[in-house]
Design a binder for these strands. Structure first.
Length: 486
RNA sequence: GGUCUCGUGGCCGAGUGGCUAGGCAGAGCUCUGCAAAAGCUUGUACAGCGGUUCGAAUCCGCUCGAGACCUCCA
């Protein structure tokens, strides 16, 4: 490796050299979805970003344990005391676990389409209630939480005597504490800044469990503290999630961990940025965000066509994970064409003519690619360099540059590693029958060549047109005719 | 109102105190039976106004504009 990996740590707000706590092992925890509705494309971006990060860490040779939770309880709605999953279950008159199952499966299917690697462990909140209750008790025992009317709240004021609540999100505790905005009515909390560790369940509440404080359910932040600790240890390398989770979710997690386990839980905090659509924010509330399904089916008033998962993934990779990214029909079309060019070039690699000398510098390219990815996973720069390689391939094809057999192999290895392994792109045009189709096409193209040689252009054009209708595009080049599949 | 991020050429989107991002679209040329593809060349870009500097799109300040979060029993 020419350069070392550097990552931007949201907590220090600086780029830092990445040094795992226990190399070659890396612990990576990412906040997963709350499974109460179809994922929207913003969620997909977050998980695709972490997929890139996961893949690159693997590519560098790290032994990564990637934990991504499924939130299936405890995430309350804005304006009511109702759990998101409970509400959905009540509305559709089904079991909460049916809601969870339906949208978990949907989530998995969707991420699979986007070629995201599954995490090493995918724990659920409901599967870790005992551990959560234990942590609540521990924090209570330390005097950093209090019971109130069947619920347990984290005591931010007490915690702040020795710790800095707000260190992650840059918030000032005094200001938070001073915020005495009226809580429209009764609150069991001593202080507005306090947050729930355990919530008392009302009699009609469907999802509830026994606890030392009566029937209830865990607070939303608790599961991540518990599950990250259980599977990655009290202190681990990377914790990630969407920007919107920074506060309060991640801030609360840190506080819970420090209160319960007396250790700094996370070395590097990574946050991915949001998605906008036509310059306007993608509404997270139900129904207003655009879903992967709508994109893949082109089923949206603002889309002129369907876009394949790889086009969408490639489009996302062309922006840095910490920048907001604007979705638009036009931008997606551009990505589709760019991706096609990239894939065509990779198909051409193996057929490239070789010679005694190389006029292209594979080593240079390799260094640039690693440098880009080592700079906080800068995929857009890496892609820009990949297009340099595309240009080379085309020039070599035209005989304007040359390459040795060894260099050709190196280039192929490099391109495959970055495009397929690291970026996680797949060639959607090639299937298992590629070889058979290759032979078939060779034969058909030979017949067409004979027609051309006999100046029977009517026939040769008919062949070309028909093939195009079938999804095979013909290109007459100097060195003969080639084709691409769509 | 508070905290933070951002404002780059037709669109998307990188980046750095002085040197080409890249993709797509547009124009011209080469190749070609035609087409497609590919290659080459090309465009007024860095919100506005000041300041620092030999030099700033890149640093500082202000203005305008956009976005995220602000514990509301998340």
């Amino acid at each position: 490796m020419q350069t070392a990996l550097n990552v931007y740590n949201s907590k220090s707000r600086q780029v830092e050299k990445f040094e795992p706590l226990n190399p070659p092992f890396v612990g990576l925890y990412v906040c997963g979805p709350t499974v109460y509705s179809e994922v929207h494309i913003g969620n997909v971006r977050t998980f695709s970003s972490f997929d890139l990060i996961y893949r690159y860490l693997l590519h560098l040779g790290y032994k990564v344990r990637y934990v991504r939770n499924i939130t299936d309880v405890g995430h309350l709605l804005d304006d009511t005391s109702e759990d998101r999953i409970s509400k959905k279950a009540r509305l559709e008159n089904i079991e909460p676990m049916e809601v969870v199952q339906r949208y978990t499966v949907d989530f998995h299917r969707t991420m699979e389409k986007f070629n995201a690697l599954p995490p090493s462990i995918e724990p659920t909140a409901t599967g870790h209630l005992i551990e959560q209750i234990e942590l609540v008790q521990t924090i209570l025992d330390k005097g950093l939480a209090y019971e109130s009317n069947g619920s347990v709240y984290f005591d931010v004021e007490a915690y702040s005597k020795n710790e800095n609540y707000g260190e992650l999100s840059g918030r000032n505790v005094d200001e938070l504490m001073a915020n005495t905005r009226s809580l429209d009515g009764q609150s069991d909390k001593r202080h507005p800044a306090d947050f729930a560790l355990w919530k008392k369940a009302e009699p009609q509440h469907i999802m509830k469990w026994d606890s030392p404080w009566g029937k209830g359910f865990p607070g939303w932040h608790l599961e991540c503290s518990v599950m990250s600790t259980k599977y990655l240890g009290r202190s681990f390398d990377i914790h990630g999630g969407g920007m919107d989770l920074k506060f309060p979710h991640h801030e609360c997690e840190i506080a819970q961990n420090k209160a319960g386990f007396d250790e700094e839980p996370v070395k590097y905090w990574l946050h991915t940025n949001m998605l906008t659509f036509n310059g306007r924010k993608m509404a997270k509330s139900e129904g207003t965000g655009i879903t992967p399904r709508e994109l893949m089916e082109g089923d949206h008033p603002l889309l002129s066509q369907a876009y394949s998962p790889m086009t969408i993934r490639f489009f996302m990779l062309q922006a840095h994970y910490r920048s907001t990214l604007d979705f638009s029909n036009e931008a997606l079309q551009a990505a589709e064409k760019g991706l096609k060019r990239l894939m065509t070039s990779i198909q051409d690699l193996s057929k490239l003519p070789t010679s005694d000398v190389s006029t292209v510098q594979i080593e240079d390219l390799s260094e640039k690619l690693y440098a880009a990815m080592n700079d906080d996973f800068n995929s857009p720069i890496a892609i820009a360099h990949l297009f340099e390689a595309v240009k080379w391939v085309n020039l070599i094809k035209d005989g304007k540059e040359t390459i040795t057999p060894n260099d050709r192999d190196s280039l192929a290895t490099l391109m495959h590693a970055f495009v397929f392994d690291v970026m996680g792109l797949t060639d959607e045009t090639s299937g298992d029958d590629t070889e058979k189709i290759d032979g078939l096409m060779e034969f058909v193209l030979q017949l067409r060549q004979e027609a051309k040689d006999n100046k029977n252009y009517g026939l040769s054009d008919t062949i070309r047109d028909r093939l195009k209708e079938l999804g095979f595009e013909i290109k007459d080049g100097k060195e003969g005719t080639t084709y691409t599949m769509h």
